[in-house]
Design a protein around this nucleic acid. Sequence first.
DNA 1: TCATTCTTCCAAAACGTTTCGGAGGCTAAC
DNA 2: GTTAGCCTCCGAAACGTTTTGGAAGAATGA
Lengths: 337, 337
Amino acid sequence: MNTIKDIAKAAGVSVTTVSRALNGYSDVNEQTRQRIQEIAEQLDYTPNHIARGLVMNRSKTIGLLTSQSFPSNPKDTFTLDILAGVNEYANECGYDLILFQSRPTGDRTYYQMCRERQLEGVITQNLPHDHSATEELAATGLPCVFIDNQVESGNASFVTTDNADGARQALAHLIGLGHEHIAFINGHHYAYVSKERRKGYEETLRESGLPYREEYVREAAFDEKKAEQEALGLLKAHPHITAVFCASDLMAHGVMRAAHHLGYVLPRDLSIVGFDDLVLAEYFSPPLTTVHQDRYTLGRKACELLIEKIEGRDTPASLIIPASLTVRESTGIPGGR
Amino acid sequence: MNTIKDIAKAAGVSVTTVSRALNGYSDVNEQTRQRIQEIAEQLDYTPNHIARGLVMNRSKTIGLLTSQSFPSNPKDTFTLDILAGVNEYANECGYDLILFQSRPTGDRTYYQMCRERQLEGVITQNLPHDHSATEELAATGLPCVFIDNQVESGNASFVTTDNADGARQALAHLIGLGHEHIAFINGHHYAYVSKERRKGYEETLRESGLPYREEYVREAAFDEKKAEQEALGLLKAHPHITAVFCASDLMAHGVMRAAHHLGYVLPRDLSIVGFDDLVLAEYFSPPLTTVHQDRYTLGRKACELLIEKIEGRDTPASLIIPASLTVRESTGIPGGR
DNA sequence: TCATTCTTCCAAAACGTTTCGGAGGCTAAC
DNA sequence: GTTAGCCTCCGAAACGTTTTGGAAGAATGA
């Protein structure tokens, strides 16, 4: 491996000059620069990231904290899209990304893991609510961006999909089709995204002159099985219901199973709308109408925000990515049952 | 950030001693070591990865090269599982992983990208066949492990699922159910995995005393749409066929669509077996019987092999991970049609 | 002619760590 | 009492880069 020294020797100049020539400083003669550049190519020179990192005190590395899901989970595609968005933007800016999929071992903290790798900033996504990683990180002063997790802190921002508007679009679609009895299966009442989706549901009903009925709303912890059970109870108790809006695609699948179990034909007897637009949604039968989250953009914007922070520029405390509705075959006009 | 110097000052010893104490060398007095360790904790010391990397000339970083798929693709879960396996083992061994999802820009090569990041080794997965990244890397001398890509080279190994045996299990299952006319929809004739799966198909037929019929075999480039078309032609031309073995789950889904289109009831009129066991397979209707690939282990073993190589130990040229059959509802005894 | 400014270059320090080669001091053996 | 060996420690060099503070020489202006 040739170093800057070898080039300096070959070109008959000092290492300073080589460094400045290669980095495009103005205080080096154009001819000298070209000669140095040629020699660098001849010697197949590649700068040493690590040495540069040491002297500049910059690792140029950020982290993505996410929770591991084994055996693999349908939501995995969600994580991978975000990862791709983050990774791509990071690379464009000359940053490396390292991925933490497991929580720190022993009594170490996420922050310690970050410090050991000299991370300059960190993005979190899909961390379980049961541990306080986000608050912990927000308190350290390390630049942070949280996806779908609202935390107020000087050094942290958060980015999320426009969950309320997504719900609004789903409801508008159903109401437009003529549905009047629309149930809602939500995730957790304490999750930020759930609160927003519920807000969109409620408001759109009210704005459309439809009553908001407490008894049409259930929670199923984003779990398919649980959603199936809730839907069974709901549909039996309220046979007027002709449509169900679910706060996730997987819960929508649970509702589909409940509907099939009750002998419903979809979408004639029941329209179903999901949330997320997982790759999976297209493969349900019938293919699922659902609120699309632009996960790649979510990741990319999160990374943009983070790098802005790292490089000392001002950043908004939050960023909302638009949602859109993907209409497939699980919704239709209320049929005659 | 406190450094080793600060500790040395506080403890009244030299930096050498601090370094050797913290790294567990034997030539430092036990009491001194403990004192140093206490002070290190008090000062909240974390070793600087980068400085260590520079002096030891080790980046302790490996790369995972994979091709990007946007918009997201059902096969993404495959990549993410492999990533998780690689990442976890790498972390356990103190290595960082960086992920390349896009090909090098301009006239740069993968190898140059690796050198710039001072990677010590690299794993590839799912690179398109149209470019010669693997051969290029194998020729550089950089430690390499290729997943599902057979390359002979001194510095490279490859790891793959036992594709032939997977196919064998699929066929044995179908034959055991009583099927005698079993078609096969393969991927590309040139792909290593396709060749192996075909071998398993052929051999199991022969061993079971069933004829191998050229006309029962088609190729569909691992593409769902293409598989659907091929299946339509196949099933129309050969109505005796009661089962189809597909070299991927997505192609199996194409076959399902073809079968539905022909008015078949599954699995009564047609049994279908896939390959991969994507998360998706469970959501098909009917849920797909398929050959399970242990992707996490695939990634983990690839990483094990790579780190063995990096640390100078002898490694086998290849490693085959067992396959298993996941039986769901898309297969049954040949029905009366 | 002299002073000033500009252009082009360089020596040396610095980043935080590991490691080489040795240096005292003490104990044990002869 | 001398020698050998062990235990514990340390100074200094090294890794490859960037950056600071200047220096030599040329060009410019008065």
